[in-house]
């Protein structure tokens, strides 16, 4: 029991330190919040989400009426960008939640049960891991038919193996510790041990890995949609807009600039967030040699 309490204290302490010290953490968090708020606002503000096209208004440069210009069907790019941010984040977050649940469950069960269970989980992980991510994603997208569902499934299958490994490794260390052995000896039910002792102690790893998985998710969604296998028109997503922007780069550069830079900001913010969380939740002290 003491072990659990002790590690809880560390995780909480790590997060508390974040609150006071790290400007990067806050900038990253701020950027993400801003993006998500903007996409919500895009849905709520009337008129902005009016996705209808206007004749003759194709590929208009940014103006007061259309702050980011218009797209190939004369729709306001701002409205489509905000919708795209929403789609990309919803898809990626949903996928990462699925990944986190699957990977954590598999990782902990494999570590706790050991033996054959562990062997099977690890081999399945190996198989998925050996597929290059984009080929795996394409194959799934083609099997399910291109679209949001396919993108979601692809992201989950691409991110699950790595996260299972990381959580499994962390859980394997926890399982060997005294408080788990004690709980086992005193006859506590296995599911209870896995949740109350193991899960609580690998939570830091889960949070860090889920953050990294989110950045992979945004990339995979982008890549799939760019290739035409992800989100489909008339819906919008960052990858889909980038794909349109790629063709019209010369006459309507604002499409690629807007969607591309939003994507870079989103991924960068998520990665920085992951780094900060990792530094705090898994701290190390290095020698300064310089």
């Amino acid at each position: 029991m003491t072990g659990t309490a002790a590690s809880r204290a560390t995780a909480a302490g790590g997060l508390r330190k974040l609150r006071t010290s790290d400007p990067v953490f806050f900038t990253a968090l701020g950027m993400l919040t801003l993006l998500i708020l903007a996409s919500v606002a895009g849905r709520l503000i009337p008129g902005l989400n009016d996705g209808t096209s206007s004749v003759g208004g194709r590929f208009e440069a940014p103006s007061l009426a259309h702050p980011l210009g218009t797209d190939g069907l004369g729709r306001s790019l701002l409205a489509r960008l905000l919708e795209g941010i929403g789609t990309t984040f919803m898809l990626s977050l949903a996928a990462v939640v699925c990944t986190a649940i699957i990977a954590t469950a598999l990782g902990i069960i494999a570590a706790y049960a050991g033996g054959w269970a562990r062997e099977i989980v690890m081999r399945i992980g190996d198989i998925l891991y050996a597929f290059p991510a984009i080929l795996l994603a394409l194959l799934i997208a083609a099997s399910l038919g291109p679209g949001g569902t396919a993108a979601l499934a692809s992201i989950v299958l691409v991110t699950v193996p790595l996260m299972t490994r990381m959580v499994g490794a962390a859980a394997a260390q926890v399982v060997q510790r005294d408080f788990v052995t004690n709980a086992r000896i005193s006859g506590v039910a296995a599911p209870l041990i896995m949740v109350r002792h193991v899960l609580v102690n690998v939570a830091g790893t889960v949070i860090v890995q889920a953050t990294y998985a989110l950045s992979v998710a945004i990339l995979v969604e982008g890549g799939l949609s760019f290739l035409g296998y992800g989100v489909q028109l008339p819906a919008s997503s960052l990858g889909l807009l980038a794909s349109e922007g790629n063709v019209y780069m010369l006459t309507a550069p604002w499409i690629l600039i807007a969607s591309g830079s939003t994507m870079v900001i989103a991924i960068l913010a998520v990665n920085l967030l992951g780094d900060c969380l990792r530094d705090r939740l898994e701290p190390r002290k290095a020698v300064d040699l310089t």
Partner: peptide, 28 residues
């Protein structure tokens, strides 16, 4: 084809219909 689909969708929706535009790979 996708561009035409979107405009047809808008025109039919302007006439009151609800149109679900499904953009598929050629095989499907």
């Amino acid at each position: 084809l996708v561009a035409i689909g979107q405009v047809v969708q808008q025109q039919l929706e302007a006439a009151g219909a609800t149109v679900e535009l499904e953009s598929l790979d050629y095989g499907s």
